[in-house]
Design a protein around this nucleic acid. Structure first.
Length: 330
DNA sequence: AATCTATCCAACCGCTTTTAA
DNA sequence: GTTAAAAGCGGTTGGATAGAT
């Protein structure tokens, strides 16, 4: 490299983060918030550049991160959004609370791309490949796996060019309120499945969450620093921070159902993929930090500073949703 | 058991955009 | 209006690890 990074210039530490470093960063942000990232390393006693700290926080330490394997619904949503947005990972991740752009990007590159090619779909264009790789794939997929049923093929119309609805003109998803409340093809009509009986992503549903308002809130937070509100690039942070506040349920009546499936719901639903249970296990790490943050928050009254739960619900009553009953969400 | 290969993902790099002085 | 710093973003890399031989 001709140009070396800031870490090189300042002879700062690079590479994987140690638990001690994580702890320092966590403690610092829990206590003071990140403020200006460039000052964080110094204040936190870290030999890292601010950029590195920011990345570590956003991609790993944030208490609201979901982590764990992606659900089928998340996967379908990613594919669908990618067909509309392209490699706008941050915008895609913003529709997946608890997921980071890096995580979505990695998932796309390591898994979804391959799967699409196997199904004879060009992951770049979402159009059929000239020479379908599907020909080389097993004619019938009898193996039952977590992702055995790949609904995206049906989600993306192959007979008509991908065309974003008019509501998607301009800066894509710069405000979710601009999005059509309903009637975007999800899935594409004609696939033989009544769309009302299938999961619909949150952003398609009326009254989901107002990113504009969230950003405003976030912005205010930067003026009067709210110590425990991690400012991150995506609205998902705030969305999920709301979850961290145990708002617990939904975005004024609409939410990503797969995030709300508690263990009971998984058990009760029966037909829900077992991956949810696995994801729940993965949540424990976040819950650890979640608890730490709540403790800090209650100490400093920062939850109030962060504003009301953007989802609108104050009840602590968990609401579980059947992933197949989402028409009720609209 | 040892080695090789493929895969995944955390972290880095550098460019662009936004914000503040 | 200009400039520099900070933040955000997407592409890429490299280390760890699982699986295959």
């Amino acid at each position: 490299m001709a140009k070396q990074s800031c870490c090189h210039k300042k002879k700062l530490r690079r590479g994987l983060w140690s638990p001690e470093e994580d702890e320092k960063l966590m403690n610092h942000i829990a206590q003071y918030g990140h403020g200006c990232w460039s000052s964080v390393p110094k204040l936190a006693g870290l030999e890292r550049c601010g950029k590195s700290c920011r990345l570590r926080w956003i991609n790993y330490l944030r208490p609201d991160l979901k982590r764990g394997t992606f659900s089928q619904e998340e996967e379908d949503l990613i594919i669908h959004l990618h067909s509309l947005l392209g490699n706008k990972w941050s915008q895609i991740a913003a529709q997946l609370p608890g997921r980071t752009d890096n995580e979505v990007k990695n998932f796309w590159n390591s898994y979804i791309k391959k799967r699409l090619r196997e199904r004879g779909i060009d992951p770049a264009t979402h159009q059929p490949l000239a020479e379908p790789a599907a020909a080389t794939a097993p004619a019938s997929t009898t193996t039952v796996s977590r992702r055995a049923v790949f609904g995206d093929v049906d989600l993306i119309p192959t007979t008509t060019p991908i065309q974003a609805p008019s509501s998607f003109e301009g800066p894509m998803l710069d405000g979710v309120t601009k999005l059509p409340a309903v009637d975007m093809d999800w899935p594409v009509p004609g696939d033989g499945v009544p769309s009302s009986s299938l999961p619909r992503p949150c952003y398609l549903q009326g009254g989901c969450f107002d990113i504009g308002a969230l950003q405003q809130q976030q912005h205010c937070g930067s003026i009067v620093p709210a110590p425990v509100v991690p400012s991150a690039s995506s609205s998902s942070t705030l969305t999920s921070m709301a979850e961290a506040e145990h708002c617990n349920t939904n975005i004024t009546g609409g939410s990503l159902p797969w995030l709300e499936l508690g263990a009971n719901a998984v058990a009760d639903a029966g037909h829900v993929d077992s991956c949810y249970a696995g994801a729940l296990d993965e949540l424990r790490w976040s819950e650890y930090f979640d608890s730490a943050f709540q403790a800090a928050a209650s100490q400093q009254g920062a939850l109030q500073a962060a504003g009301q739960c953007v989802y609108g619900g104050k009840d602590d009553v968990p609401v579980h949703f059947d992933v197949h009953g989402l028409s009720n969400w609209c």
